[in-house]
Amino acid sequence: MDMIFGVPAPLLFGQLVLGLINGAFYAMLSLGLAVIFGLLNIINFTHGAQFMMGAFVAWMLLTYLGIGYWWALLIAPVVVGLSGIVIERLFISRLYKLDHLYGLLLTFGLGLIIEGTFRNLYGSSGLPYRIPPELTGAWDLGFMFLPVYRGWVVIVALLVCLATWLVIEKTPLGATLRAATENAALVQAFGINVPRLVTLTYGAGVGLAALAGVLAAPIYSVNPQMGANFIITVFAVVVIGGMGSILGSIVTGFVLGVVEGLTRVFYPELSSTVVFIIMAIVLLTRPAGLFGRA
């Protein structure tokens, strides 16, 4: 058997792919958090629950309405995004003039309520969601077999991240968003309806979380805890990348997923903590994050 750095090649590549998959979810989730934080100045602790809702909406569409994976990719983000818009209008919009802490507490509480509600309705053992038939099977890459669905997730995540980045950096809408992030009052004094922009941005960030949830549904079982498991690491990613940095959250998400995977190969005991060790080091040396502006 081929060995790389004293490790069987299939094990190494297997963990590398697993790391890339996790990294894809880290990147998509932290991207949504970054967009929301940039404009709303709210650390959206409901994000994990909204990721979970995306997976559940996909499951419900299939189970109750017979609507499959491909439509779910479209419908679930819209549905969950709309629920985010309602939450922003009803609750979050009341907090903009207050300290960060209130937004954090509110969204954390909302996350708990949403997760508790789903646990109450569907239990916590997890519901199966099958990989769509078009994406089953595996590619033989020569050095390893890559399950098609996992490759698909990485590609979609990369495309979604790239598209989001392009919209924010290269379009007039993105320029307006960046300007509003810098000085919302002045942007509004130019005649732009900033409160509506804020609401739609929150909806879009939440929709991004839900899209990640749909992608995750066939990989992890659909259960109320699936977001909570991810989100702690995602917050570490956001801190490492730099609060509100779009590019930072994408790059950091993928890289940390891979770092985690490699740690699982070379020093498994550390694999669940490595991200937090990196976070501590970054906080000590570059408090604004690797890509953040101080």
Partner: peptide, 11 residues
Amino acid sequence: SLNVTENLFLP
């Protein structure tokens, strides 16, 4: 974070 053209077209 906006270039001159983006600033010009913002309002």
